[in-house]
Amino acid sequence: MTEKDHPLVRIRDLKVRFKGARDVFAVNGVSFDLPPGRVLGILGESGSGKSVTLKTLLRLLPEKRTDIGGVVEVEGRDVLALEGRALADHRGGVVSMIFQDPMLALDPVYTIGEQIAESVERHEGLDRKSAMKRALDMLERVRIPSPERRLKAYPHEISGGMRQRAMIALALACRPKLLLADEPTTALDATVQMQILLLLRELQKEFGMGVIFVTHDIGVAVEVCDEIAVMYAGEFVETGTVRDIIRNPKHPYTKGLLAANLHGAEKGHRLDAIPGAPPPLDVAPTSCSFAPRCAHATDRCRTAKPPAVALGPGRLVRCVLAEEGAAAA
């Protein structure tokens, strides 16, 4: 098996449904490939299924209450079939994750060093001393000042930005092939946000890993990603390179997101927010989920799901408008 045979991540028609008093169709047919060493940004608003897609890759969703359908492969291995030891090796060893709020994601009763060492010991069978050495090395790599001291610091003793750096060090300590980032900069202030994004980008190149970066901030996505997938109501409505999405958005939702951005907004003008709210997902969508909020919606949008129109390699748009455009071209 060479890397050419298998993309790092291969997801086909992923469907996730949460069972309960009210079912929630969180993800409704997502497919994508991520080659090694690339950064995919998943862009979408709250509840669009971005985090659920990420958690599926680590099998973090509560097993009893979720139905997962489709194919999820990392390096050619079927993630949904992993059990026991193999699953433990997969989590943290092959795929690892950083969270939105590093204050909550780091255990308050252990030092930074202990937490990194614990993970290294588990995956690489190192003794405490070498694991601590690795932890120190990782803190240096994420450019935490005076790392020897921070190694013995508790999470509440360091600043928010440094905590997120420590979280990144923890996630990368076992050299994962794939890093999942769940809005890692949302809880930070703007200047620190930028530093963390640059650091992530540098480390991604240094380690040559694939990254899936989930965010609701298009500015953040542009900064770190190679490709962007715009997610709405559990579906990818548009995918493409950063350039495609920014310069030439096809889907009305993507256009709306770009228009609602604060950058370039003029004083005294109202922001062009997208009217309405995302649909409730208690039934599987049978038509275009965005149609109720879309200014260009036609009867066709309201009766059947729009086709996924391929405009090029890795460039998909799920909209009837794009179909017309493609036919005309």
């Binding site: 680590l58 255990d107 588990r122 995956h123």
Partner: peptide, 26 residues
């Protein structure tokens, strides 16, 4: 329900380790 328990699961810790280290510690 706090993230560090999920983070521990995401880094491959077994249920027993999570209880022993992260739950009991807190």
């Amino acid at each position: 329900k706090i993230d560090y328990v999920e983070a521990a699961r995401a880094s491959g810790a077994s249920g027993f380790t999570i209880v022993r280290v992260h739950v009991l510690g807190n």
